[in-house]
Amino acid sequence: MNVLPEMPEHGGQVELLMRAFPDAPEPFIDLSTGISPYPYPFGEVRQSDLTRLPEQGEEERLLNAAMRAYGVRSPELIVAGSGTQLLISLLPYVLERKKVVLLGPTYSGHATAWRHAGADVHVASDMDTFSEEAAQPGCVGVLCNPNNPDGRHHDPLDLLALAERCARVDSCLVVDEAYADFENHISVAGHIPHSSLVVLRSFGKSYGLPGVRLGFLLATEALIERMRKMLGDWAVGTAAITIGCKALDDREWLDRQKVPLDHAMQRFLALCRRRNLPVVGHTCLFALVRTHEAPDLWSHLCKNGIVTRFFADRPTDIRFGLPRCEADWARLEKGLNAWRP
């Protein structure tokens, strides 16, 4: 198989990818993202939410809803932006550090953001090395918990101990908790404010609404104020505020999603076992398959109209999201059963 010369940096971009497979059946099935296949039922978008700018009181209600959802002490410790990716891109200019260590392999958006800002970026492959480098004076350590794309978890007590080490030398620990909504026991968000701890939380993944473009940064009041000034006025649109407030306060709905998501993931893992596909890690929203036949499998699925996440820099890895419906499950099972490595 010939891998495309330039793979997209992130999941999605289905139309772009599928130009290379003009004979693939439609509709295409996008399993390339770790987004919940079960979107929050927010109802209709009000026309008034699209014809006016948000009021200050609405923005304050959104931050209060996020405060309750993430267990933060005050809304003054939270800033909202139009997606976590925007906050990640601006964070290097808020923290103003030039030495960064990432615990990898992980979400590529972090390395891209810091490199674009002119930082010296190093990727550590194990937690001991990462911790030692992150606790160097003036350094920033960035990790995802749980990790994307392999689902690795880190004990929050270990992360808090590392944050304390960072505080003693004026370094900083950034924890991206984009996939922590269904695993709140590993979150360190409740320990904000902490002088050397920054937390990112995503909205669209767990609520199945990436198009809403909503994410949150949790940090000290001083850092939040700097990010708020950098974002400027009306950083989140009125419709996103309305949907976000409703969804974040509906904890019962979010708790109910864990059961069907766990069942769906177990179904996928069973399918992988039947096809002898080794899964090296997973959350309830995505799983990482590792095989030397990954390029061929990725191409085979694309030819069947199924898009997964292939990593050009790690050509043994494919990340799978979850199908939305029985028709999508049937096509995935048929595609995998037809694959001959």
Results as ranks from 00 to 15, higher is better:
Leu218Gln: 09
Val142Glu: 07
His110Trp: 15
Ala180Val: 07
Gly118Gln: 08
Thr283Gln: 06
Ser131Ile: 06
Ser299Lys: 03
Cys284Ala: 10
His110Pro: 03
Pro323His: 10
Thr112Met: 10
Ser195Cys: 11
His153Lys: 14
Ile78Val: 12
Asp328Cys: 11
Val289Gln: 02
Ala330Gln: 13
Arg324Met: 09
Asn276Lys: 15
Asn337Leu: 06
Val169Arg: 06
Pro295Glu: 00
Ala111Ile: 05
Ser48Thr: 15
Lys98Asn: 13
Ile306Thr: 00
Thr242Met: 13
His191Ile: 01
Thr33His: 11
His153Arg: 15
Phe320Pro: 01
Ser89Met: 05
Arg52Gly: 12
Asn64Lys: 15
Ala20Leu: 04
Glu333Ala: 15
Met1Tyr: 01
Val279Ala: 08
Leu103Gly: 02
Ala134His: 03
Leu95Ala: 06
Val188Lys: 05
Pro8Gln: 03
Pro295Met: 00
Phe268Arg: 03
Leu336Glu: 07
Leu332Met: 04
Val175His: 00
Asn304Ala: 13
Ala294Met: 05
Ile192Phe: 10
Glu44Cys: 07
Tyr207Glu: 07
Val188Gly: 03
Val142Leu: 12
Val169Trp: 12
Asn145Met: 02
Arg97Thr: 08
Ser74Met: 10
Leu248Ala: 00
Asp126Gln: 09
Tyr207His: 13
Gln257Met: 15
Leu322Pro: 02
Gly208Tyr: 10
Ser82Arg: 13
Arg152Pro: 05
Ala294Glu: 00
Ala69Thr: 01
Asp155Thr: 09
Glu333Tyr: 06
Gln136Ala: 14
Leu271Glu: 10
Thr51Val: 12
Val236Trp: 04
Phe286Val: 03
Val280Leu: 04
Lys258Met: 08
Gly57Thr: 15
Phe286Glu: 02
Asn145Tyr: 01
Val236Asn: 09
Leu95Thr: 02
Asn145His: 05
Glu252Ser: 12
Leu63Pro: 00
Glu15Tyr: 05
Asn64Asp: 14
Lys258Thr: 07
Ala163Glu: 04
Gly281Pro: 01
Pro341His: 07
Ala65Val: 08
Glu15Asp: 14
Ala270Asp: 14
Pro22Gly: 09
His263Glu: 15
Asp126Ser: 11
Glu221Ala: 15
Thr283Ser: 13
Phe42Tyr: 15
Ile192Asn: 05
Cys166His: 08
Val188His: 01
Ala65Met: 11
Val279Thr: 09
Gln266Trp: 10
Asp250Gln: 04
Glu9Met: 13
Ala178Asp: 02
Thr112Pro: 00
Val174Pro: 01
Phe311Cys: 02
His282Gly: 00
Asn304His: 13
Ser108Asp: 05
Leu63Gly: 01
Ala189Met: 05
Gly43Leu: 10
Gln13Lys: 14
Asn147Ile: 07
Pro75Asp: 06
Asn2Tyr: 02
Pro260Ala: 03
Leu218Ala: 04
Tyr107Cys: 12
Phe320His: 08
Tyr107Trp: 13
Leu77Asp: 06
Ala24Glu: 01
Thr238Arg: 11
Glu177Val: 00
Pro146Asp: 11
Asn64Cys: 13
